[in-house]
Every structure is written in structure tokens, then in C-alpha cells.
Amino acid sequence: MAEGNNNHSNYNTVKNLLKKRVEIVSDLSLQKKITGILLAIFGVILLINGYFNNAVHFINLGIGLIVIGWIVLIFSHEKYIKYDITSNVLNDHMDIIKKLIKGLNIETDGIVIPPKENLKDGCIYLPLHRDFKINFSLIDDSTLFVNSDNRDEMGIVFSPLGKGLIKLLKKYRGEYDAPLKEKNDIGELSEYLDYFLTLFQAGNNIEVKIHNKDIVTISYRIVDNSLCNKLQKEELCKKCPCPICGAIVLIIAEFLNEVLKIESIVEKNKIITIKLKIIRNILK
């Protein structure tokens, strides 16, 4: 009973915080719009004044202000993708995954498999046992449960959350850039991930480091951490990361073309730290 009340008050707090956030964001957007309109009006006044008084500098300044005001108005648009991380749809999806993981009593961490011939978008693999082996011949796009005579090869395959974002990213990025597999510099990877976070307005300040050639650490600042709190509480981050972290780990797996184990995903004050381990020895 007490737990139920607690959950209800938590739900109300989160709801109020979200309401406040939406108000602040819409206020900011309105302020930007007002600034843009004022700049454009001031520009028109300067332009007319300059035209009648034959003052070229005023005409120039007027045109410049109109252009800047127009650009400020364009920049005042709200998010391109309505990425509502706390949406009921996503919550329901996560609940199904949670039930599946709990039902099968899976205690292992997620394994990120990069795109391969039989796995077009890559996948998150959750082995059933801690001493596991990955048999790639048993895993493809249509597999959910991996069944094998060898119990070490058994597990579940999830289509990674965030693969839709990666597809969208590749579609936009493709116009300007070479494919991810052709990149070989860690700086290029950081730039790619920075672009990803900026494009979807999901975060910023990303840093990627590779230690001893087998540990990869990524840290970035997330814009909306409400889902992080929920997933961290249920310890789902390591098993099936949210769309943003999921897309990041998948991009890194694709860049390195290696199978990665999610060692930890920690959120503290909106800073996400992801630790991944490259696994090479246990592949069959």
C-alpha cells in the first residue's frame, strides 16, 4: 500500500516537472519569436528611413537586420522530431522487454552486435548464462530466442532501440559524408556522434575514449533524463539501452566492427557514462 502511494507521488512529481519543462521551453521559443519579429520590424524601419533620407548605411543595416530577424525566427522552431522519451508507447515497449527479461531470469549484460550480412541493423544479444558463446549462424534478423544444443549459446536477440534514429541519421549524413565503416579515426567518430546528438537535440558534449584497445568509455550530456531515471531504477540500461544510448553503442560497434559488451551505463546529473568492453575471445 505504502509502495503504491510512493509510486503515485513519484508519478505526480515527474508529471509536474515535465509540465514545467514544457512551459519553460515554450516560453523560450516565444521569446525567440518575439526577438526575431522585433529585429525584422526594426530593420524595416531603418530601411524605409534610409531610403527616404538617402542614407545607404541605414538601408544596408535595415536589410541585414531583416535577414537576421528572419533567421532568428527560423531558429525558434521547436524540436524537429517530437522525441518524447517518457511517452506511453516507449514505456509499454520497455515494460514488455522488462517482463521478458525477468520471466527468463536473465542476469547477463547486453552484447552489442554490429550490422553483419544476416543482421542488417545489428542487434542487442542477451545471453542466458554468464559463460556464453555467440553462434552467429543461429542469429539473424528474424530471430528472437536463440535455441541451441549448447546451453552457452542460448539467449534472446533484441532489435536495438534507436536503429530508426540511425537510419534517419544516415539518410541525412549520407549527403555530406562517407559511410561510417570507412572512417578510422576516433575524432571522426566523436564528430559523428556529436552530429547525431545535435541533429536530434538529444544531448551534447560527447567524449569517446578507448583504453588498452579493449575498453571504450563514452560520456555525454543528455537533454531529457526522465527515462534514464526509470531505466536505471529497473537496471534495464545495461540490458536494453534506451533509443539514444542504444543508437550510440550501435554506432560505436559499427565503427569498430567489433562485438561489444555493455559493462555499465550510469546517469548522474544528466551526464551519461557508458563503458563498453570489446569481446574477441568468446566468439565461435
Binding site: 545607404v56 548605411h57 543595416l61 537586420l65 535577414v67 533567421i71
Partner: peptide, 18 residues
């Protein structure tokens, strides 16, 4: 925005033709 504003202010002062 910063670069465009600075550039616009600068050239609007020094250029005598629209």
C-alpha cells in the same frame, strides 16, 4: 548568428552601395 550579426554590422558601416 554571432558571425552573421558581426559581419552584417561591419559591412553595413563600411560599404557605400546596397
Amino acid at each position: 548568428l554571432i558571425i552573421l550579426t558581426l559581419f552584417t554590422t561591419f559591412i553595413s558601416m563600411f560599404v557605400n552601395e546596397v
